[in-house]
Amino acid sequence: MREKILKVLDKNGRVTPEDLAVMLDLDVETVIKEIKAMEEERIICGYPTLINWDKTECERVTALIEVKVTPQRGLGFDKIAERIYKFDQVQSVSLISGSFDLCVMIEGRNMREVSSFVSEKLAPLESVLSTSTNFILKKYKEHGLELTDEGNKDERMLITP
C-alpha cells in the first residue's frame, strides 16, 4: 500500500488524501495515517515544487561539483558529507562510485557566488583532496519530468470511436 501511495505522490505531491483514497481504493483515514507515518519515518522528506527557473526573471546558476575526499577512520564518508551538505548553497550531495567520491550540486545567484563558495568553503576543507566544477548550461529533464514546452499538448482528435 505504501508503495502505491508513494508512486502517486512521487509524480504529483499535491494529490489530496481524499483523491488518493479514491484512486487507490483505500479509506481516507488509512491514507492520512500512512502519509503521516511516512513523514515521521522520513520516508517522505518534503514536497518541493519542480520549477524551471530559466523561464523566470530570477538569476540562478547551478554547478555540479565532483569532489574527491579522504574518508575518515570510523566515520567513512558521512562526516565529510555532512560538513558539505549543511551549507545552504548545497542543493544535493551524493556518494558516488567511480573516479570521484561526492557529487555536490551547488546553486548560487551567479558564477562568482558559486566559484567563491568552492574556493572559500569547499576546497579548503581538510578532507577534500580535489574539486572539479561543472556549470550546468541547460536543464532538459528533472525528476522524470521534461522541462521543455512541447510534449504537454493533447494532439488527439476530440472524439474517436
Binding site: 488527439r156 482528435m157 476530440l158 472524439i159 474517436t160 470511436p161
Partner: peptide, 14 residues
C-alpha cells in the same frame, strides 16, 4: 464538437 475550439473532451477512444 470539432467546431467548438475550447471544448473539453472526454470523448476520446485512444
Amino acid at each position: 464538437v470539432s467546431e467548438m475550439k475550447d471544448a473539453i473532451s472526454l470523448g476520446v477512444g485512444e
